[in-house]
Amino acid sequence: MIIDFVLNGKKVRLNSKPERRLVDILRDRYSISSITGDCYRGSCGNCMVLLQGRPVPSCLVLAANIRNKEIMTLEGFRNTDEYRDIEGGFEEAGVKLCEPVKPALILLVHDLIQREENPEQSEIRNIFRSIETRCGGESTLFRAIHLAAYFRRSRNGS
């Protein structure tokens, strides 16, 4: 099956079985190394990507579902100003994330502060439900997310 989609801002054409999982396609065909196929049930978050701008576990997305869609991985997101807001927040708070959980946390934080420029504690708490990890202390993570939101607001001039 031929599938056209946009990966990290570039149009690409893929020939794949329609029932292959997006995480494996991205890793095997496009050498996207920020994500891994870990739990294959959508609970760990290690394969998080943006699909049409929203974070989704790419192990629960099939090749057939990405036709004419936009996929952004952490590799592509790294080149954006939005990423720098989050990176700044995490650095300032001294968060040292375990590698596997990075894409999930960064993309989920982006999604949250995109929707809520000054997120409440409960909304922040909610995003952690999409990941499964023993890494990360609560106080530094919360601080990092508040700082990221602050940097985003400052950059947007609000």
Partner: peptide, 11 residues
């Protein structure tokens, strides 16, 4: 399943 980060109260 693991306890998600932020499931605990302030420590």
């Amino acid at each position: 399943h693991l306890l998600p980060p932020a499931a605990t109260p302030p420590v």
